[in-house]
């Protein structure tokens, strides 16, 4: 077999999905999503500095269903990347690298992401309604 035809690892077509690899892919995917999200952040700050009308326009867009959907995706991505990033920082110190603790940490990150997202939206929407 020539070098060009040799199967590369990980061979995604035959690779069994597992928590560890999925979470690794998600870390990169949410990082890319958050990079796009920074444009929204800067637009929001820029509109506010331009005056009440541009600010109201951005607030109106963010309050629409598509705006809320974007904000929801942004919040899930942010909490995931934050929690999993902390997991990475812990690994960098040499802790929690045993396979069972890698899985425990993974589930903890997913649980924390879900909990933080739900709490943020309950509090945020309650605040918004007033």
């Amino acid at each position: 077999m020539s070098p060009a035809e040799r199967p590369l690892s990980p061979h995604l077509q035959v690779y069994r999905w597992q928590l560890t690899s999925v979470m690794s892919i998600l870390h990169r995917a949410t990082g890319i999503a958050l990079s796009v999200g920074t444009i929204v952040l800067v637009s929001w700050l820029g509109a506010a500095s331009d005056g009440p009308e541009p600010y109201a326009a951005v607030q109106h867009f963010l309050g629409s269903w598509i705006g809320l959907l974007l904000l929801f995706g942004w919040s899930v991505s942010l909490y995931y990347h934050l929690c999993n990033g902390i997991r990475h920082l812990v690994w960098d110190t040499g802790y929690a690298l045993e396979l069972n603790r890698v899985y425990t940490g993974g589930w903890a990150v997913l649980g924390a992401t879900a909990a933080l997202t739900v709490v943020s939206w309950v509090v945020g929407l309650a605040h918004w309604a007033h």
Binding site: G63, S120, V123, G124, L125, H127, W128
Partner: peptide, 10 residues
């Protein structure tokens, strides 16, 4: 940001 949900410009 959560505290600012729906806040006006002022």
């Amino acid at each position: 940001v959560i505290g600012l949900a729906g806040a006006d410009h002022a």
